[in-house]
Design a protein around this nucleic acid. Sequence first.
DNA 1: ATTGAAGCTATAGTAGCTATAGCTATTAGG
DNA 2: CCTAATAGCTATAGCTACTATAGCTTCAAT
Lengths: 146, 146
Amino acid sequence: MLTIGKLGASAGVKVPTIRYYEQIGLLPEAERSAGNQRLYSRKALDRLAFIRHARDLGFTLEAIRDLLSLSDEPDQSCAAADAIAKAQLAEVESRLVRLTALKAELERMVVQCAGGRIANCRVIEVLGNHSLCTTDHQHPEGDTPA
Amino acid sequence: MLTIGKLGASAGVKVPTIRYYEQIGLLPEAERSAGNQRLYSRKALDRLAFIRHARDLGFTLEAIRDLLSLSDEPDQSCAAADAIAKAQLAEVESRLVRLTALKAELERMVVQCAGGRIANCRVIEVLGNHSLCTTDHQHPEGDTPA
DNA sequence: ATTGAAGCTATAGTAGCTATAGCTATTAGG
DNA sequence: CCTAATAGCTATAGCTACTATAGCTTCAAT
């Protein structure tokens, strides 16, 4: 059995984050020692590593919740899991497109800055006037960064 | 003079967002009509458009605060503005790198899913076992998504 | 026995908004 | 002129996914 600190170190997750996952029901309530400290099994480590890995791939906690309950039913079709992964892929792809446009625009801004006074600064000027942009950039709002 | 609704429509910013920007001091306190409603000048529209554009390019509100105060001093050197833009570009570039790795990994997962039972689902399997990954993906944490 | 690290709970804070409740002001139509 | 719809107002709470803090207890080592 692992203490919460060891568990966190093993899975690469901070201790408060583990408690947070328990609080929101992503991890089951841990067993407790005589002194009321959480104790974790190897199975708990697997589950946490799963969560960590999915987070690294940018899945939301909601998606992870679904993936976890799917993984608890090995006989079910994996179509649902596949759909979640595909949605995440689509999300990442669309973010890549927009980020690429952003990068191009920022590069243009930075390159054009001649290093003079603010009054002539291309950075400030472009920010104040979208029509100076070449691309139709727009940031992806309201979703996870990954 | 524009009402807050017209201003928002002109700049592509929602009304509560404008009030929020005022609240955090990004926009100055608006003049008020006899009936206590906010009234905005053309100058306010320019400022809001600037903010909107910078947000679209992924700048944080903190960075925008700095850019705005720089733009208020036309005689200053634009080195600081340039530095902020360069930092944002670097941020976007590093996010692009990580997102690209994520995309590759997600594609691998999705392609390998044969559409059978969860027990054999590649998606679930890969999530549970990072060593099945080829890339060293890791999501960019704690920053704006754009 | 004592000290330091690690654990506990509960609460608040982070970014950048968005939503809600409950009110008042303005405007268009009849 | 009156009314009803729309737009505005304030204040507060909620969102994601944590992170930080305060003030306490337990544990491991010396």
